[in-house]
């Protein structure tokens, strides 16, 4: 087992054990069952999503608040446009070429969809399709910045086949 897989398995065990603990709320019988359920879940998770590029946890802790602030800004932005009588919109499409791996590209798409003014529609090859609410707001720059941030979350280890 590679070091990357080991590390990912430890991360996932912590996450799933935490979820199980929350659900079973400290019931002792539940903790015994957890000894079976959590490893089974980790196995399923590794089988479905083999670890390739390990996450950098400390960068993730920095990223999460920025994402939350961004999604609040996204909600406020859309609410402002919806309630404004003049409804300022200038919608259009961007095609953004990506160097990211598959998982990171999908995550970027999901995050962009919650950020101000951008909405991903999947990708065409490695080109991310982004619908923007307002072409005047230079959305391209925001997308690139977000992509760089996501790219920094994983080790630049060589992408597996």
């Amino acid at each position: 087992m590679s070091r990357v897989t080991m590390k990912a398995m430890i991360h996932r065990t912590v996450v799933f054990a935490l979820i199980w603990a929350v659900l079973s709320a400290g019931d002792p019988a539940g903790q015994v069952l957890g000894l079976i359920v959590v490893p089974a879940t980790v196995w399923l998770s590794v089988a479905l999503l083999p670890a390739r590029n390990p996450l950098k946890l400390w960068r993730l802790t920095g990223h999460t608040p920025r994402f939350l602030v961004g999604s609040v800004a996204g909600g406020v932005d859309v609410a402002r446009r919806a309630f404004a009588p003049s409804m300022p919109l200038n919608p259009g499409w961007l095609r953004v070429p990506m160097q990211l791996g598959d998982g990171a590209r999908v995550a970027l798409g999901a995050e962009l969809s919650l950020m101000p003014g951008t909405l991903a529609a999947g990708s065409d090859g490695s080109v991310l399709l982004v619908h923007v609410l307002d072409l005047d707001a230079e959305p391209g720059r925001a997308v690139e910045a977000q992509a760089a941030e996501i790219a920094a979350l994983t080790d630049p280890a060589p992408e597996g086949p």
């Binding site: 996204g74 446009r81 919806a82 919608p91 969809s113």
Partner: peptide, 14 residues
Amino acid sequence: FSRLHALTKADNLG
């Protein structure tokens, strides 16, 4: 697509 923006962002914030 604009409607999809509204729904995704505002709702989840709500």
